[in-house]
Simulated scan of single mutants.
Amino acid sequence: MTAKPDCPQKQDARVNGTTQTDDAGPVTRGSMSRTLPDICFELQAKIEAFLAEQTDDHVLRNVQSQIKVSMGVITEALRRYGPDHLSLSYNGGKDCLVLLVLILACLPSCASHSSPSTSHTATTNSTAVPASENALSSPATLPGQPLQAIYIVSSDPFSEVEDFVAGSAERYHLDLKRYALPMRPALEAYLEDRPAIRAIFLGTRRTDPHGEFLTHFDPTDEGWPQFIRIHPVIDWHYVEIWAFIRRLQIPFCDLYNRGFTSLGGVTNTRPNPALAVGGDASKFRPAYELRDDDEERLGRD
């Protein structure tokens, strides 16, 4: 089965992640002309600076620790499979946004060591070792191709999400393929379109549905398209995701500013009632003010 969402005859600005604006503001001519290496080295420098900070804030210290573990997982994935065989599941949400930034920040250091391991299929359930602090600054040549990504569209997507996915794909030079299909046929179609893909990065966290027993590297379940699922941010907490985004000043979807804490579709997602202002169901605090992992999905049916 092959989906055809990127038909060149269509001029939909959301196809293949091309658009002129996103929820973080206009994609200016200057930002569109920035190369992938420019972006990767900038993000790498931001993360290096953050990791070098001395802070008494326990959340920020936890984020620093989480970054090192996650970048170790990403580095191991690049070593095992190589960028030509890797993809990212990207829907514009906060978790996969953090994951995208971490992957791009790893590319300068990992590029010269990213040829796939000959034994990668034998160790699919291992937990990666945290990255060395010195590994971030290793000189390397970036791969010439953008990061491959798949966007599986909700059956009733928010226009804000669609626009943010398109704008951020443009901003970060994603090679994004968009499928308006249920998850299983979307993955089947993607692997038919991109048969070289062997593993896909996912922004799943431990508190997400079915996330409780996942490891950093897991094969897909029986009956599903076969690839390795990679979960670099599996053990991040909700507050740590937002601390990373805000500390590094990463643009994010505007729905989060309006009280949404988990993004689904228009018919099954609403602002989180735990963020209602004074019991008023029409006013909500931003998503980053929520503190409890267990309350993250209160806005999802």
Rank of each mutant, 00 (worst) to 15 (best):
S155R: 13
P195A: 07
G17E: 06
P219Y: 07
A287S: 15
L298K: 15
S70D: 06
Q54M: 05
S132F: 05
G203E: 01
L187V: 09
H231V: 04
R34I: 14
A287L: 03
R206D: 09
I250R: 03
G299R: 02
V59G: 03
F158W: 08
S132R: 11
P146T: 00
D254F: 00
P251N: 02
R297H: 02
A45T: 08
T75A: 15
W224E: 09
S137M: 14
Q11R: 13
D208E: 11
D221H: 07
R80S: 12
P225R: 06
C253L: 03
W236L: 03
G278D: 08
P157S: 13
T141C: 11
P251R: 03
A77N: 02
L78V: 01
Q148A: 13
R205M: 13
F201I: 01
P139V: 00
G211K: 06
R171N: 08
T141A: 11
C7F: 11
R297P: 03
D23S: 12
G30W: 06
P195F: 12
S168I: 14
A128P: 00
P273K: 07
V101A: 04
R61L: 14
R29E: 15
F158T: 01
I228P: 01
R178W: 00
C96L: 09
T127C: 12
L51K: 10
H210F: 12
A186F: 00
D23M: 08
A49F: 07
I67M: 06
Q44E: 15
I234D: 01
L88M: 05
Y288F: 10
V27G: 06
P271T: 04
V73T: 08
D235W: 11
L298S: 05
S89Q: 10
I230C: 01
F213N: 11
F41W: 14
D163P: 13
E222F: 03
H58V: 02
G259W: 01
V98K: 07
S109L: 13
A3P: 15
A122C: 07
D208M: 04
S115F: 08
V129N: 09
I228Q: 04
E240A: 04
A45D: 13
R206Q: 09
T220C: 07
T75I: 04
E188R: 12
S262Y: 00
P209I: 12
R270E: 10
A24Q: 10
L147C: 05
S132L: 09
L100I: 03
D95M: 09
L100F: 01
A186D: 06
S87K: 10
E42G: 05
E162W: 00
S126C: 06
S132T: 10
M32E: 15
N91G: 10
R171A: 09
E42W: 02
Q148D: 00
Y179N: 04
L51R: 07
R205P: 00
G265K: 01
N16D: 07
A13E: 13
S115V: 09
T55S: 15
S155A: 10
H120Q: 06
E296L: 07
S159G: 00
L43Q: 05
Q11K: 12
R300Y: 09
S117C: 15
H210C: 13
F164S: 02
D294R: 15
H85C: 11
S65Q: 05
P209R: 15
G264T: 01
S132E: 15
S70I: 05
H173C: 09
T121N: 14
P273L: 04
P130E: 12
K68F: 05
L263V: 03
G259A: 02
A287E: 04
T123I: 11
S154W: 00
